[in-house]
Write a protein that binds this DNA or RNA. Structure first.
Length: 589
RNA sequence: GGGGGUGUAGCUCAGCUGGUUAGAGCGCUGGCCUGUCAAGCCAGAGGUCGCGGGUUCGAGCCCCGUCACUCCCGCCA
């Protein structure tokens, strides 16, 4: 809480209540509003704590009144006056300080202000670029202040919760080494080492392993991370992770610790997170929800219809099944009477998501069945669909027949789309763990295996022997924390054996030389007494965005960047002088 | 890299089928006003219609290009 200590104020604006009646106060802040009645002037004075009405009456102080006639919105002023209860009939119940007002005895202009580029008040709809360019004005508005304050509370709660559990906060380097794979690095030229570059960390990844090897046992950091990739509503080139790592743990230890901490953190948003959270294997998440970050605020799960259509005469389904594919469907309750054009729009969604087409059956509220494919389906098949998907009149069945992963992913997209259209998402937060991710995934374009989480993930013990033989079958100790369909965090148990780490890198197609060059320091460290360890990293911006109900992480970052990575306030990025380039041995076209 | 949307006064927007001097609300400036809190009333100022080119007798509106913002796909181990 803001208070008046260590300042020339006696109180802060938002704290004044009827208890303060008769007190002489000194306040300072910004002029939020000025209502000039000619012979009486009201000024709403604002600081971080809130707003209080100040009354300038020439009968009290002619000098102050003259000052009040000059002042304008966003001027910075100091006032001295007396708190009094507002006269009968003038109380403002919409204001925290609405029972009282300050009768001003003297007023000082601390600084004038140009007319602000937009009005400083709640609910404005000003273009974001303008708000960013004048972010220091924008942040005087209550929504921005509230978001940043929530972020502060969440951050502090993480610190407290983790400190109470024995975690040490340790800072890791910002100027570090580029590593292959992952996102594009931001790079920084080295003046003292011509032609060499630092990279900004994509996450503290390797350092947290080194801290475990160093015996710190439990580490955390509110860590800034940098990734030079295209932006999104939930992605900025620099963002913040709550990075956590623990020694001598199994996966379950990390999950339980995180659940306890998250329970405490979510309280800052007045939410009682029920723990333990549900756990869903990656394969089950894909099978039931068509997503590795399922939104559990609504049902509409995917169901297999492969058995129903196993002997179908309908060539599209039969062909897909014969080719090793699956037929699956979802049942959208209450969309059975949708217009043809509205359903056709869904077909386009399916095509965009990678399907060859969308099969649908509309069961109207009147008991009719409408479907372009009905004539190809037997009575038994139709009955199978009704039974499997628990169809009722008024439902719309959407079906996809394709390779198993395509079928799941497309239906996953349709499921989300229908939930939005039908407004099915429940209020509140629905969190879960998605666990047991495959160790590797096949990159068809580059014809090689990629790490699913990262190259340091520990495979299941029972899959270690067959790692090279069947990389695609190996599962790993990895887990994502998913809230409302957003990936809030993810982590893994780490490989702590140099030998196993070499094998994992080899499967990823990283040569021994490259492994030595890029990760030699890690391999060396792993050979010098590395304890079993694992951890997790949470996306702080995304979490706060979620808790704040914001639609972009820009809303919870004090000075965000535009979608081209620019900062309209400072003008970054910008050119530098020839001298600066020369110093770092760079030439620019 | 690709697709969609937006760009007109300080802010938010309207501007019809291409037609005379581009409008509104808020804000701003000045005046009046002693109980307002979205104060009220009166008057006023304020425009490179993102930018460049083209079509046309005539372009805010049509065409081409370009820039910025924004959403999505790719990308983000």
């Amino acid at each position: 809480m803001l208070d008046a200590r260590y300042s020339f104020r006696s109180h802060v604006c938002g704290d004044l209540r009827s208890d303060n009646t008769e007190e002489t106060v000194t306040l300072a802040g910004w002029v939020a509003k000025r209502r000039d009645h000619g012979g009486l002037i009201f000024v709403d004075l604002r600081d971080r704590s809130g707003v209080v009405q100040c009354v300038f009456d020439p009968d009290t102080s002619g000098e102050a009144f003259v000052t009040a006639e000059r002042i304008r919105p966003e001027w910075v002023i100091k006032i001295e006056g007396t708190v009094r209860k507002r006269p009968d009939g003038t109380v403002n119940p919409g204001m925290a300080t609405g029972d009282v007002e300050v009768v001003v005895v003297s007023a000082t202009v601390l600084n004038m202000s140009e007319t602000p580029p937009f009005e400083v008040e709640p609910g404005i709809d000003t273009d974001e670029t303008t708000r960013m360019r004048y972010r220091y004005v924008d942040m005087r508005r209550p929504e921005v202040l509230a978001a940043i304050q929530l972020r502060d509370r969440v951050t502090q709660r993480f610190r407290k919760s983790l400190e109470h559990r024995g975690f040490l906060e340790v800072e890791t380097p910002i100027l570090t080494k580029s590593t292959p794979e992952g996102a594009r690095d931001f790079i920084v030229p080295s003046r003292m080492n011509p032609g060499s570059f630092y990279a900004l960390p994509q996450s503290p990844q390797l350092f947290k392993q080194l801290l475990m090897i160093g015996g710190f046992d439990r580490y955390y950091q509110i860590a800034r991370c940098f990734r030079d990739e295209d932006l999104r509503a939930d992605r900025q080139p620099e963002f913040t992770q709550v990075d956590i790592e623990m020694s001598f743990v199994e996966q379950e230890d990390v999950l339980l610790m995180m659940e306890d901490v998250m329970h405490e953190v979510m309280k800052e948003a007045d939410f009682d997170l029920k723990v333990p959270l549900p756990r869903l294997a990656y394969s089950e998440a894909m099978d039931r929800f068509g997503s590795d970050r399922p939104d559990l605020r609504f049902g509409m799960e995917l169901h297999s219809l492969t058995d129903v259509f196993a002997t179908s005469e309908f060539k599209v389904f039969a062909g897909a099944i014969a080719a090793g594919g699956r037929v699956k469907g979802i049942c959208a309750r209450g969309a059975g009477d949708w217009s043809r054009s509205r359903i056709d729009a869904l077909n386009q969604v399916a095509l965009d998501a990678g399907a060859k087409g969308l099969a649908w059956i509309a069961f109207t509220g009147d008991g009719e069945v409408k479907s372009p494919i009905a004539k190809f389906l037997s009575e038994g098949e139709m009955a199978g669909v009704r039974e499997t998907l628990h169809v009722q009149p008024g439902d719309l069945v959407l079906m996809i027949a394709d390779a198993p992963d395509v079928t799941n992913e497309v239906l996953g997209v349709l499921r989300l789309r229908m939930a939005d259209e039908l407004e099915l998402k429940r209020e509140g937060f629905e969190a879960l763990w998605v666990v047991d991710f495959p160790m590797f995934k096949w990159d068809a374009d580059e014809e090689r295996w990629n790490a699913n989480h990262h190259p340091f993930t520990m495979p299941f013990v029972e899959h270690i022997d067959s790692l090279e033989e069947k990389p695609g079958d190996a599962l790993s100790y990895s887990y994502d924390l998913v809230v409302n369909g957003l990936e809030i965090g993810g982590g893994t148990l780490r490989i702590h054996s140099a030998e196993l780490q070499r094998r994992a890198l080899a499967i990823l197609g990283i040569s021994e030389e490259e492994a030595e060059e890029k990760f030699g320091f890690l391999l060396e460290a792993l050979s010098l007494g590395a304890p079993p360890h694992g951890g997790i990293a949470l996306g702080l911006d995304r979490l706060v965005m979620l808790l704040a109900g914001a639609s972009s992480i820009r809303d919870v970052i004090a000075f965000p960047k535009t979608s081209s990575g620019a900062d309209p306030l400072t003008g970054a990025p910008d050119t530098v002088s020839q001298r600066q380039l020369k110093d770092v041995h760079l030439k620019v076209d």
